[in-house]
């Protein structure tokens, strides 16, 4: 039996709805395809060729070889190590500070909105202008940070101009030296004891970064705290749990999806770091603050090596993707939570 034919009016309506659908999505899709979707694949394509202003010969994986083990390997691994160090300094500190502040702010109290707004303020402040303020605070000759160090009896530092590691500086102030072990050969500009720690310059950039982002983290944590049902707290109080037990046994575990979310999103942010590096240090001193985001800019824009830049960008993208997928999973749990 043939199916009963759909009425002509109904068919016309379906056709019209299809057409309307295409017309409505068209403007957005065209822009997204041209500037956001296809370029993602173009980056991979470009990284397989040689580029001298225009596209050159096919090179297969040669660009990757140059970046990972060849002539550019040293600067690539240095920038990757800077990026990871920067992540390891900023992300845990941001999380601890913002978690504690969110927990304090979550309880009903006077002036809560004012505190929250104030903590959030740095996050909406333009990165370039805010970084300029921190450059001034860390000025080697006139900066306020050195004045503060002077109060506790520490001599002036050169902050963003200081390539030496902070552990090296601290040990050095006691007249000791660190063992001269380094993954980079003795003549390399990156040669530095593995115990030296992050350069003071990188610590300076990290201080700025933490200041800039904790307000964002606090808002996310506050949302997460709001998703925890009050019943758990009431039940725990009835059972005579202390505030501390409530925090460690109820708040922290139930907040863990939010914490993971904040951690991945902050990690992705630091993998991408560019603006603050550009404004504060230009990747220096001695490339100790040159993150991968800055290195890509340097290689492709300042040195004009589009091919090597594309290869590095693809590698960075793969790293970011790992965290993005992870974040998607966690985000899903976060949404289903309440």
């Amino acid at each position: 039996m043939p199916r009963p034919a759909i009425g002509a009016t109904r068919r016309r309506r379906i056709l019209a709805e299809n057409l309307l659908g295409y017309i409505l999505v068209l403007p957005a899709i065209v822009i997204i395809l041209i500037f956001q979707f296809l370029p993602g694949f173009a980056a991979v394509y470009m990284s397989l060729f040689r580029w001298d202003i225009v596209q050159g010969a096919f090179r297969g994986l040669d660009n990757y070889q140059t970046v990972l083990v060849g002539g550019r390997a040293e600067e690539f691994w240095q920038s990757l190590s800077v990026t990871l160090t920067y992540t390891l300094i900023t992300v845990p500190i941001e999380i601890v500070i913002s978690l504690v502040l969110a927990y304090l702010l979550f309880q009903k109290m006077r002036g809560r909105g004012i505190y929250r707004a104030l903590y959030f303020l740095p996050y909406i402040t333009s990165v370039i202008a805010a970084a300029v303020i921190f450059n001034w605070l860390m000025n080697p000759s006139y900066g306020l940070f050195n004045t503060l160090l002077g109060f506790v009896g520490i001599g002036p530092q050169t902050w963003l101009d200081e390539p030496r590691g902070i552990i090296e500086l601290i040990v050095g102030s006691f007249g000791a030296t660190l063992p001269d072990w380094s993954p980079f050969a003795a003549g390399s500009p990156f040669h530095q004891s593995i115990f030296a720690g992050p350069s003071l310059a990188l610590v300076g950039v990290s201080i700025y970064t933490i200041w800039h982002y904790i307000g964002f983290q606090i808002v996310i944590f506050l949302a997460g705290l709001g998703n925890i049902s009050n019943e758990y707290y009431e039940a725990a109080r009835l059972d005579g749990a202390s505030e501390r037990q409530i925090f460690t046994k109820i708040t922290l575990p139930l907040l863990s999806p939010t914490t993971f979310f904040v951690a991945t999103i902050a990690t992705i942010g630091s993998l991408k770091a560019f603006n603050q590096i550009y404004a504060m240090t230009n990747g220096g001193p001695l490339e100790t603050t040159k993150t991968l985001g800055y290195e890509i800019f340097h290689v492709f824009f300042q040195q004009g090596r589009i091919d090597l830049g594309a290869a590095m960008a693809v590698l960075l993208t793969l790293m970011i993707l790992v965290f993005t997928v992870f974040q998607f999973r966690v985000a899903e749990r976060r949404v289903h939570y309440g």
């Binding site: 500037f35 956001q36 979707f37 296809l38 370029p39 993602g40 173009a42 980056a43 470009m46 992705i268 991408k272 985001g293 890509i296 492709f300 589009i306 830049g309 594309a310 960008a313 693809v314 960075l316 993208t317 970011i320 993707l321 993005t324 997928v325 998607f328």
Partner: peptide
């Protein structure tokens, strides 16, 4: 899922 870093150069 595609970050701005990937699309910048193209």
């Amino acid at each position: 899922m595609i970050p701005g870093e990937a699309t910048l150069i193209p």
